[in-house]
Design a protein around this nucleic acid. Structure first.
Lengths: 207, 207
DNA sequence: ACAGAAATTGAACTGAACTCAGGTTGATCT
DNA sequence: AGATCAACCTGAGTTCAGTTCAATTTCTGT
């Protein structure tokens, strides 16, 4: 069982939440690389040095955002599927849950998937590495969420037998590929995307 | 018709090709962000300043790698599908072509898809911007390659009618999602991946 | 009101990308 | 062969964003 990172209990005048929110906006709208760490400080209304009271580094903040988004995704999946016994319906519910997100969460998704490669290599500093390791665990958890769903469907004879690991990774890859191009302000509403992908996933898995 | 960027015709003692090759290795194995530009110089056997004779910046080199890989992908798609009239067979051929790559090309794919977000915002310098614009054009070309294939199949009555644009983007997203995790040294051979994804795409599109 | 932790700061440091002002090399032509 | 000239290369700086340091201020609990 993955031990959740203890989120620093918020002192009453902590700006941690504000920093995370501002960072998600900056990193999501512009990008992690191009947004200056000092800009985040400005937007929160503190000097750049104050950031280091809350995060060890710019990257530590990024990793924190990623870890929290992964936690959210996993929780949402669980919540959406736990009472659904029919595998096909569970799959549909999981896909719908994946796209049932706020604009802010869209940004978090974009940030997460644009920086997945960060999770492969080890980090130099303690707290960065802790977040990284936890995030990696959550990635595996989420992958297992999807594979387990497929395994269940296959063993119940509802889904044809296939490499569940590989198919799970593919389904997940298909779903998250949307975050690369989707923009809330764009021409395609998310509901439409959700519907098409839901169908595609079912065909992929259940045919 | 997209006008190809004129690749600087190679002077006999040009190290451009060597730099690109070294950069692909570095950026692909480690990552663009963490590899020092000077390391690339070292590996080629020149001083760091000499790099600026060939590329305006580290990012200009990255954009060049991306543009060339996109060109390769598009060419390969065309080559693989041009004589195949049956849409399902063309789809299969296109998927197989996408995974018929050398280890070096795997790295290029990884680099490309890990930095797609670079193509959205404009660049400051001339040559960087030129590469970016050309790369964006190629992205759209590749997307059109896939959507056109779907449109053809739909109008021939072989594929059920669906939003071809969205479905095309999804198919492409599914295919390239592999480059995020696939490693030539990993446990899953690419042939296996190719086969599973080929099936998945056909089910997604033709069912 | 006082202690002490939490929060903040200006000034200095670091390191990697990049610029500059020239120096070297070698293909080509007469 | 020697001159020429563009292509190619270099060491010594410059810049700039991220980070560290050495304090000081602000708030909270007792």
């Amino acid at each position: 069982m993955a031990t959740r990172i203890v989120e620093p209990e918020a002192g009453p005048r902590s700006k941690r939440a504000a920093i995370l929110a501002a960072a998600v906006d900056c990193f999501g709208e512009t990008s992690f690389e191009t947004t200056k760490w000092s800009t985040v400080a400005e937007r929160v209304g503190i000097g750049q040095t104050a950031l280091y009271h809350y995060f060890e580094s710019k990257t530590h903040c990024l990793l924190t955002i990623m870890r929290r988004e992964l936690q959210r995704s996993h929780d949402k999946f669980t919540e959406a599927t736990e009472d659904v016994e029919d595998p096909t319906e569970a799959l549909r519910a999981a896909v719908r849950a994946a796209y049932d997100v706020s604009d802010h969460e869209v940004l978090q998704m974009r940030i997460l998937h644009n920086h997945m490669d960060l999770l492969s290599g080890p980090r130099k500093s303690k707290r960065e590495e802790a977040e990284r390791v936890e995030a990696r665990k959550l990635v595996q958890l989420v992958e297992r969420d999807w594979t387990n769903l497929l395994v269940r469907g296959m063993s119940m004879g509802v889904f044809p037998l296939r490499d569940a690991q590989l198919l799970g990774a593919s389904v997940l890859g298909l779903i998250v590929s949307v975050w690369r191009w989707y923009r809330p302000s764009g021409p395609t509403p998310l509901a439409e995307v959700s519907e098409l992908i839901e169908g595609a996933c079912v065909r992929m898995v259940a045919t």
